[in-house]
Design a protein around this nucleic acid. Sequence first.
DNA 1: TATAAGTAAGTGAGCACTCACTTATTATTA
DNA 2: TAATAATAAGTGAGTGCTCACTTACTTATA
Lengths: 216, 216
Amino acid sequence: MIINSVNTLFDQALTKTSLSEKQKKVLKASLLLFSKNGFDRTSTKEIAEKAQVSEGTVYKQFKTKEGILAAILKPFVKSVIPSAAAEFITALSQANYPLLEEFLTQVVQNRMEFAIENKLQLKIFAQEVLHDKNLAYTLKHEIGGELVVKMGLALKYYQKQGQLVAWAPQRIAQYIISTVMGYLVPCILLDQPLDVPEASKEAVEFLIKGLKKNSE
Amino acid sequence: MIINSVNTLFDQALTKTSLSEKQKKVLKASLLLFSKNGFDRTSTKEIAEKAQVSEGTVYKQFKTKEGILAAILKPFVKSVIPSAAAEFITALSQANYPLLEEFLTQVVQNRMEFAIENKLQLKIFAQEVLHDKNLAYTLKHEIGGELVVKMGLALKYYQKQGQLVAWAPQRIAQYIISTVMGYLVPCILLDQPLDVPEASKEAVEFLIKGLKKNSE
DNA sequence: TATAAGTAAGTGAGCACTCACTTATTATTA
DNA sequence: TAATAATAAGTGAGTGCTCACTTACTTATA
């Protein structure tokens, strides 16, 4: 199998780097193999073959196999917080979304699209999180914590508006994330397509019901 | 570190087998090492050391390393469906067809306890699911499908009663599972304790709001 | 005494990684 | 501009090490 037009967002990110064509092929091949078979069940020989490159070339740029993994995951992880934060802010500040439902629809749909575009990286990240407690800790406290703070700003706005239950932002964020994950997990595990507009519509229907402030 | 009183339920299951003491120690050690470091990052030498047993002993009973994994996961996976199905039935019949909220509380609390008791196996299973698409397929269609059918019986009852929204049982089950998973994942990843009564109370509060039939 | 359980030193295969070398690209100078 | 030097990119046959698994043997049990 030849590697071409696999992961659009990933390809875009690659063009911005100063890597040679062969090195980019190494990263693409690694992304595919790691996500399919796992980091530990992928040999550097396999990577070289899939990238149509010698094994020495693999090691010219990336000093270790872990280095390849880092080169794949770092840009992804680093982009999660900024892109999500930006999404919350635009959704809010545009003031286009006076209703909680509109805000949620926009954010849920956008985050689902982001996840689908990065589903290979997400799968590799999940594999690593299950192997490395430090990474799990980072995910919860640094990434998760930061996201809750950013999202919390928006949530508090809707709580003041009386549209959203008065639960802790952390708790509300958890429900939003886990509900969205419910749609993403099968798609990531089985590499199936996801009807994002339909899924986000359904998810938001449930979330709104579960999170709206009951008029008393 | 010595292996003792680690996993109560696992220990109980072990006593029912015809394995020798040393073989049981092999399984216990493997359970701990696999869940902590992952299957691929655990060597049979490490297992033997942790079990205070020679490497040959490991291979007397379990012909391959995969065999050890199967001996750990099979009893767990096989018990998921029956124990859940039994729980749905007892939750319904014991309290003589309780309110949806009472049913959900009972089921959610019970399943959370089951998950916590088997969290090491669950973590190993998750690792494997991310590596093996066939296993992911089995999880979704055989295990998941079966559970939805069993749970669906109860859900349909509550739909007829007018207590539960008229969404597809598959969809409702997904929301229940993902909401519960939201509480379980951090605890499984970081090996932290979970206040099950509190967590299930919170989860049900949200689920009831999101899933109750709106009186029209 | 026969069968099972346990041992520890192998064994060969596969792995991540290296190194001496070749080829391509860029910089420098006549 | 052409020739050459200097640097970088790429190659593939190693290399040593770890790993899953075996085997010849010893000890315990029925």
